[in-house]
Amino acid sequence: MTLLQSEIDANGVQFAKNWADEMSSNMAALAGNSHLVDSYQRLTAIQALKAGIVAKKYSPGSAEFFYEAHNDTLTSHVSASFGAWRLSLQALRSAIENSLAAIYYKDHPIELEQWTNGDFRISFSDLFKYALFHPRIGPHENHLKTLADLKSEYATLSKAVHSSAKMFRMTDSAGLVLLWSTDNARLSMWSTRHRKTVQAISQLMVTLHAEDLKGTAAASLRSVLYFSIGSSKRAAIKKHLSVTIPAP
Protein backbone atom coordinates (compact mmCIF):
# COMPACT_ATOMS: atom_id res chain seq x y z
CA MET A 1 0.00 0.00 0.00
CA THR A 2 1.35 3.41 -0.95
CA LEU A 3 1.71 6.31 1.43
CA LEU A 4 -1.12 8.13 -0.42
CA GLN A 5 -3.44 5.14 -0.04
CA SER A 6 -2.64 4.91 3.65
CA GLU A 7 -3.38 8.59 4.11
CA ILE A 8 -6.69 8.31 2.24
CA ASP A 9 -7.74 5.29 4.30
CA ALA A 10 -6.86 7.07 7.53
CA ASN A 11 -8.88 10.08 6.44
CA GLY A 12 -11.79 7.77 5.65
CA VAL A 13 -11.74 6.30 9.15
CA GLN A 14 -11.68 9.78 10.67
CA PHE A 15 -14.47 10.98 8.38
CA ALA A 16 -16.69 8.07 9.43
CA LYS A 17 -16.08 8.87 13.10
CA ASN A 18 -16.74 12.57 12.58
CA TRP A 19 -20.06 12.13 10.78
CA ALA A 20 -21.25 9.52 13.28
CA ASP A 21 -20.41 11.85 16.17
CA GLU A 22 -22.09 14.77 14.43
CA MET A 23 -25.23 12.76 13.70
CA SER A 24 -25.50 11.74 17.34
CA SER A 25 -25.02 15.35 18.40
CA ASN A 26 -27.71 16.53 16.02
CA MET A 27 -30.15 13.89 17.24
CA ALA A 28 -29.59 15.00 20.81
CA ALA A 29 -30.09 18.65 19.84
CA LEU A 30 -33.38 17.93 18.04
CA ALA A 31 -34.76 15.33 20.43
CA GLY A 32 -38.20 16.26 21.72
CA ASN A 33 -38.68 19.10 19.25
CA SER A 34 -42.38 19.79 18.79
CA HIS A 35 -42.11 19.47 15.00
CA LEU A 36 -40.82 15.92 15.37
CA VAL A 37 -43.40 15.07 18.01
CA ASP A 38 -46.16 16.23 15.69
CA SER A 39 -44.59 14.35 12.79
CA TYR A 40 -44.66 11.04 14.63
CA GLN A 41 -48.28 11.58 15.58
CA ARG A 42 -49.13 12.08 11.92
CA LEU A 43 -47.33 8.87 10.99
CA THR A 44 -49.68 6.84 13.16
CA ALA A 45 -52.41 7.69 10.64
CA ILE A 46 -50.41 6.23 7.75
CA GLN A 47 -49.78 3.10 9.79
CA ALA A 48 -53.48 2.85 10.60
CA LEU A 49 -54.43 3.17 6.94
CA LYS A 50 -51.86 0.55 6.08
CA ALA A 51 -53.18 -1.95 8.62
CA GLY A 52 -56.88 -1.06 8.53
CA ILE A 53 -57.47 -0.70 4.81
CA VAL A 54 -54.54 -1.54 2.56
CA ALA A 55 -53.53 -4.83 4.15
CA LYS A 56 -57.14 -6.01 4.03
CA LYS A 57 -58.32 -4.78 0.64
CA TYR A 58 -55.31 -4.58 -1.67
CA SER A 59 -53.57 -7.40 -3.49
CA PRO A 60 -50.17 -8.21 -2.00
CA GLY A 61 -48.33 -6.65 -4.94
CA SER A 62 -50.29 -3.40 -4.95
CA ALA A 63 -50.21 -3.17 -1.14
CA GLU A 64 -46.44 -3.21 -1.23
CA PHE A 65 -46.47 0.21 -2.90
CA PHE A 66 -48.37 1.69 0.03
CA TYR A 67 -46.11 -0.14 2.47
CA GLU A 68 -43.21 1.57 0.74
CA ALA A 69 -45.01 4.91 1.00
CA HIS A 70 -45.34 4.33 4.74
CA ASN A 71 -41.65 3.52 4.90
CA ASP A 72 -40.89 6.70 2.95
CA THR A 73 -42.72 8.84 5.51
CA LEU A 74 -40.82 7.11 8.31
CA THR A 75 -37.54 7.64 6.46
CA SER A 76 -38.38 11.31 6.17
CA HIS A 77 -39.07 11.55 9.90
CA VAL A 78 -35.87 9.74 10.88
CA SER A 79 -33.77 11.77 8.44
CA ALA A 80 -35.21 14.98 9.86
CA SER A 81 -34.40 13.81 13.38
CA PHE A 82 -30.70 14.33 12.64
CA GLY A 83 -31.08 17.22 10.23
CA ALA A 84 -30.70 15.56 6.81
CA TRP A 85 -33.22 17.92 5.26
CA ARG A 86 -32.83 17.25 1.56
CA LEU A 87 -32.93 13.49 2.08
CA SER A 88 -36.04 13.85 4.22
CA LEU A 89 -37.78 15.85 1.49
CA GLN A 90 -36.81 13.37 -1.21
CA ALA A 91 -38.45 10.61 0.83
CA LEU A 92 -41.71 12.56 0.94
CA ARG A 93 -41.75 12.84 -2.84
CA SER A 94 -41.35 9.08 -3.07
CA ALA A 95 -44.24 8.62 -0.62
CA ILE A 96 -46.56 10.51 -2.98
CA GLU A 97 -45.49 8.41 -5.95
CA ASN A 98 -45.91 5.14 -4.07
CA SER A 99 -49.33 6.07 -2.70
CA LEU A 100 -50.68 6.81 -6.17
CA ALA A 101 -49.02 3.68 -7.54
CA ALA A 102 -50.73 1.54 -4.89
CA ILE A 103 -54.13 2.79 -6.06
CA TYR A 104 -53.31 2.32 -9.72
CA TYR A 105 -51.92 -1.21 -9.40
CA LYS A 106 -54.77 -2.23 -7.11
CA ASP A 107 -57.05 -1.72 -10.10
CA HIS A 108 -54.59 -2.99 -12.75
CA PRO A 109 -53.39 -6.52 -11.92
CA ILE A 110 -52.12 -7.14 -15.47
CA GLU A 111 -49.98 -4.00 -15.44
CA LEU A 112 -48.78 -4.99 -11.97
CA GLU A 113 -47.64 -8.34 -13.31
CA GLN A 114 -45.93 -6.59 -16.20
CA TRP A 115 -44.26 -4.17 -13.79
CA THR A 116 -43.04 -7.09 -11.68
CA ASN A 117 -41.43 -8.56 -14.80
CA GLY A 118 -39.83 -5.25 -15.69
CA ASP A 119 -42.08 -4.73 -18.71
CA PHE A 120 -44.22 -1.79 -17.57
CA ARG A 121 -43.63 1.70 -16.25
CA ILE A 122 -46.02 4.56 -15.61
CA SER A 123 -45.18 8.22 -15.08
CA PHE A 124 -46.29 10.39 -12.19
CA SER A 125 -48.42 12.42 -14.62
CA ASP A 126 -50.31 9.31 -15.69
CA LEU A 127 -50.74 8.14 -12.10
CA PHE A 128 -52.14 11.55 -11.26
CA LYS A 129 -54.50 11.51 -14.24
CA TYR A 130 -55.77 8.07 -13.27
CA ALA A 131 -56.60 9.27 -9.76
CA LEU A 132 -58.18 12.46 -11.10
CA PHE A 133 -60.62 10.50 -13.26
CA HIS A 134 -61.22 7.76 -10.70
CA PRO A 135 -65.00 7.60 -10.06
CA ARG A 136 -64.53 7.63 -6.28
CA ILE A 137 -61.92 10.39 -6.21
CA GLY A 138 -62.41 12.77 -9.13
CA PRO A 139 -66.01 13.80 -8.42
CA HIS A 140 -64.97 15.14 -4.99
CA GLU A 141 -61.92 17.06 -6.17
CA ASN A 142 -63.66 20.43 -6.55
CA HIS A 143 -64.61 20.34 -2.87
CA LEU A 144 -61.69 18.50 -1.24
CA LYS A 145 -58.74 19.56 -3.44
CA THR A 146 -56.93 16.37 -2.48
CA LEU A 147 -55.16 15.84 -5.78
CA ALA A 148 -54.44 19.53 -6.16
CA ASP A 149 -52.65 19.41 -2.81
CA LEU A 150 -50.73 16.29 -3.80
CA LYS A 151 -49.67 17.79 -7.12
CA SER A 152 -48.57 21.02 -5.46
CA GLU A 153 -46.48 19.17 -2.89
CA TYR A 154 -44.98 16.94 -5.54
CA ALA A 155 -43.87 19.97 -7.53
CA THR A 156 -42.29 21.56 -4.47
CA LEU A 157 -40.57 18.37 -3.38
CA SER A 158 -39.27 17.78 -6.91
CA LYS A 159 -37.22 20.94 -6.49
CA ALA A 160 -35.49 19.25 -3.55
CA VAL A 161 -34.87 16.08 -5.54
CA HIS A 162 -33.37 17.97 -8.47
CA SER A 163 -31.83 20.72 -6.30
CA SER A 164 -33.46 23.25 -8.60
CA ALA A 165 -34.15 25.75 -5.84
CA LYS A 166 -31.47 27.34 -3.67
CA MET A 167 -33.44 26.84 -0.46
CA PHE A 168 -33.14 23.06 -0.83
CA ARG A 169 -29.34 22.98 -1.15
CA MET A 170 -27.27 21.54 1.67
CA THR A 171 -24.09 23.42 0.69
CA ASP A 172 -23.30 27.13 0.81
CA SER A 173 -21.82 29.52 -1.74
CA ALA A 174 -18.30 28.58 -0.61
CA GLY A 175 -18.94 24.91 -1.34
CA LEU A 176 -18.86 23.82 2.30
CA VAL A 177 -19.95 20.20 2.64
CA LEU A 178 -22.97 19.97 4.94
CA LEU A 179 -24.49 16.54 5.41
CA TRP A 180 -27.04 17.83 7.89
CA SER A 181 -27.80 20.69 10.25
CA THR A 182 -30.00 21.56 13.22
CA ASP A 183 -31.14 24.86 11.70
CA ASN A 184 -34.62 25.54 13.05
CA ALA A 185 -35.76 27.28 9.86
CA ARG A 186 -35.01 24.14 7.85
CA LEU A 187 -36.78 22.01 10.44
CA SER A 188 -39.86 24.22 10.20
CA MET A 189 -39.79 24.09 6.40
CA TRP A 190 -39.52 20.30 6.46
CA SER A 191 -42.35 20.06 8.99
CA THR A 192 -44.66 22.01 6.68
CA ARG A 193 -43.88 19.74 3.76
CA HIS A 194 -44.33 16.61 5.90
CA ARG A 195 -47.63 17.84 7.31
CA LYS A 196 -49.07 18.69 3.91
CA THR A 197 -47.85 15.49 2.27
CA VAL A 198 -49.14 13.16 4.97
CA GLN A 199 -52.44 15.03 5.10
CA ALA A 200 -52.92 14.74 1.34
CA ILE A 201 -52.08 11.02 1.33
CA SER A 202 -54.44 10.41 4.25
CA GLN A 203 -57.21 12.36 2.58
CA LEU A 204 -56.67 10.51 -0.70
CA MET A 205 -57.15 7.17 1.03
CA VAL A 206 -60.20 8.40 2.96
CA THR A 207 -61.79 9.65 -0.27
CA LEU A 208 -61.17 6.37 -2.10
CA HIS A 209 -62.39 4.22 0.79
CA ALA A 210 -65.10 6.45 2.22
CA GLU A 211 -67.67 3.64 2.15
CA ASP A 212 -65.53 1.70 4.61
CA LEU A 213 -65.33 4.64 7.02
CA LYS A 214 -68.90 5.90 7.28
CA GLY A 215 -71.06 5.73 10.37
CA THR A 216 -69.51 3.76 13.20
CA ALA A 217 -67.18 1.72 10.97
CA ALA A 218 -63.43 1.71 11.67
CA ALA A 219 -63.78 3.96 14.70
CA SER A 220 -60.18 3.63 15.87
CA LEU A 221 -58.83 4.32 12.39
CA ARG A 222 -60.97 7.42 12.00
CA SER A 223 -59.77 8.71 15.37
CA VAL A 224 -56.11 8.34 14.43
CA LEU A 225 -56.72 10.28 11.21
CA TYR A 226 -57.35 13.29 13.45
CA PHE A 227 -53.56 13.63 13.78
CA SER A 228 -52.91 13.82 10.05
CA ILE A 229 -55.91 15.75 8.70
CA GLY A 230 -56.50 19.36 9.72
CA SER A 231 -59.78 20.83 10.95
CA SER A 232 -60.91 22.44 7.67
CA LYS A 233 -60.22 19.25 5.74
CA ARG A 234 -62.02 17.17 8.37
CA ALA A 235 -65.06 19.41 8.00
CA ALA A 236 -64.99 19.06 4.21
CA ILE A 237 -64.66 15.27 4.48
CA LYS A 238 -67.65 15.12 6.80
CA LYS A 239 -69.74 17.33 4.54
CA HIS A 240 -68.91 15.76 1.18
CA LEU A 241 -67.99 12.16 2.08
CA SER A 242 -70.14 11.66 5.20
CA VAL A 243 -67.08 10.45 7.09
CA THR A 244 -66.56 11.79 10.61
CA ILE A 245 -63.04 12.07 11.96
CA PRO A 246 -63.47 12.60 15.71
CA ALA A 247 -60.98 13.89 18.21
CA PRO A 248 -59.26 10.93 19.91
Rank of each mutant, 00 (worst) to 15 (best):
S25H: 07
A45R: 00
N98I: 06
S232N: 14
A95S: 02
T44R: 02
F120K: 00
K166A: 14
R222W: 08
K145T: 07
S164K: 13
S6I: 09
A101L: 03
H143S: 13
L221P: 06
G175K: 06
N184H: 14
I53D: 08
T2Y: 02
F124Y: 11
A155F: 12
V54G: 01
W190N: 04
E141N: 00
N11D: 15
K57D: 07
E22C: 11
D72V: 04
D183S: 14
D21F: 12
W180Y: 14
D107E: 05
I237K: 10
T171E: 15
S228N: 04
D21G: 08
S164P: 12
V13M: 15
S94R: 09
V243L: 00
E97P: 04
K233W: 03
A69N: 10
Y58H: 08
K151F: 13
E113Q: 15
S88D: 09
V224N: 07
A28Q: 07
I103S: 05
E153R: 05
I237T: 08
S232P: 13
N71T: 09
T207N: 03
T197C: 04
K17P: 06
D126K: 13
H77L: 06
D149E: 15
A155W: 08
R195K: 11
K159C: 04
H70T: 09
A95M: 04
I46S: 02
T73R: 05
T156W: 03
F128M: 01
L144S: 02
F65L: 03
R169N: 15
N26R: 07
Y105F: 03
D126T: 12
S6Q: 15
A55G: 10
R234K: 09
V206M: 08
N142A: 14
A31Y: 03
M205H: 04
G215S: 14
E211P: 11
D38P: 11
R136G: 09
L176E: 15
H143N: 13
L127K: 03
A101P: 01
P60G: 00
K196F: 04
V78S: 07
H194S: 03
P248N: 06
A84E: 06
Q5S: 15
G83L: 06
E153H: 07
M170E: 14
L87Q: 11
Q203A: 07
A236V: 10
A219R: 13
V243K: 10
A28E: 09
F15L: 09
S232F: 12
Q90E: 11
D38T: 00
H194A: 02
D107H: 00
E22N: 12
K239Q: 14
K145C: 00
